[in-house]
Write a protein that binds this DNA or RNA. Sequence first.
DNA 1: TGACAAAGTTAGCCTTGCCTTATAATATAA
DNA 2: TTATATTATAAGGCAAGGCTAACTTTGTCA
Lengths: 253, 253
Amino acid sequence: MSNESKQLSASLEDYLETIYWIASDKGAARAKDIATSLNVKAGSVTGALQTLARLGHINYAPYEVITLTESGREIAQEVVRKHETLKEFFGDILGISPGVAEEGACKMEHSVPDEIVDKLIMFTEFIQSCPRCGNNWVEQFHLYCKEKAIGSMDKCQNCLEKCATTFAEDKNKLQSGNIVTDLTSVEPGNKCQVRSVKRGPASKRLAEMGISRGTIIEVERVAPLGDPVEIKVKGYHLSIRKEEAENIIIDQA
Amino acid sequence: MSNESKQLSASLEDYLETIYWIASDKGAARAKDIATSLNVKAGSVTGALQTLARLGHINYAPYEVITLTESGREIAQEVVRKHETLKEFFGDILGISPGVAEEGACKMEHSVPDEIVDKLIMFTEFIQSCPRCGNNWVEQFHLYCKEKAIGSMDKCQNCLEKCATTFAEDKNKLQSGNIVTDLTSVEPGNKCQVRSVKRGPASKRLAEMGISRGTIIEVERVAPLGDPVEIKVKGYHLSIRKEEAENIIIDQA
DNA sequence: TGACAAAGTTAGCCTTGCCTTATAATATAA
DNA sequence: TTATATTATAAGGCAAGGCTAACTTTGTCA
């Protein structure tokens, strides 16, 4: 049981990723679904499943449903994180069309080193929060791509000034209406930045999740009664209790 | 002779890339050098060379030196371009350590789509030329990576203002000393942006190379008498005559 | 010139990964 | 309980890519 093996092949990573998606949709995966999803025959799936089971990444017994083990989930989540990170960067920042962004992410998710994904997430977040990148900076880049030239000096000065005034306005707005807001008030789909985390029974857990001052959180979904709040932090999908969310004081982005 | 085949394997791309480097160093490659460079035995090299020859990517005859054909050079250059683009982005923008940047580039060069490389080059160039990214913007990002938080509002305002004044100063400096400069005055290792290309016998060739208003050019090397000027444009390594360089009017970056 | 070393070639072989088909076993639901 | 769908197994194909070992060619130097 070399549970801590070196590196899975791209193909096996794809199997894990597929199982992850099917399982998070239906609770557990069946061979048929995997075969359909990956476009292979049922026989091939069994072989891959046996390999993954031998490596300790899935819970598998003949004719039973398939679930991920701890290590399998970790690997799958990491692959998904890489995939989503690349896709978002390509799409939202570089302005690549969705199809190519998806295709590129699929190919590259198996080769990008962890360290680079981490930095890419930081970079994307930085771009989305640095005031100098406010006021349509990304759109300026897309314009540059079309026109193949930076604007004239005067145009740039204009842009720079507008950026400054926009920032000053936002700042005033924020400081005048200085309301303390917590994570529960963020709408699904929106991002925010953590100002502070209130001390409490859960603060250690939150810190372990990487939630601290400055962290950028995207709220993905909120359950009917607001209880489990599903969020994305540094590319990881997490779920936190309402009480925990209330302890996270944020600046709305 | 399916000269226009679909996609080479990562391994064959590596062979072409290696031949490219050896050939650009010594004029032609020998099997021994390739074997050493790729860390394989001589026998394996012969096999790969035969495959590449069959595909029309190298000029190969038993016991003779090896050179790239037109198609082989194209592929090799594209791989090199991907490699360098990724490495530069990882290192210069993301702030990844040279070792990891190199390793990541090696792995990803075989899977990144052309379109994404193109955009990544544009993006890197945009960052290096947009005034809003002047005044140490990239360093601000690296600081952010360390401190995991954007600066305070006041700090950001300060940064923004300093960026604006720096830009204004540069602008004044440029406009007061309004000297027309051409590419020959750029020191090796520096970058500049094309303001215009003088009409002349070579202007068509330059346009074909993708050199036009707004293009960013990095001067890599200048031969002793200033004659062939080696430059890098959009990730491609090119060589142009002195007379051509003199027709390229630039803004020093 | 001729002998030898270095470089290159060839052939046979092996491993790995990943897929397929055909057939057998099991589960499920009418 | 029996037909149908789903899984499992076994055998095998095949392409990529490497290795070894024996052999050939080439170039160099005495």
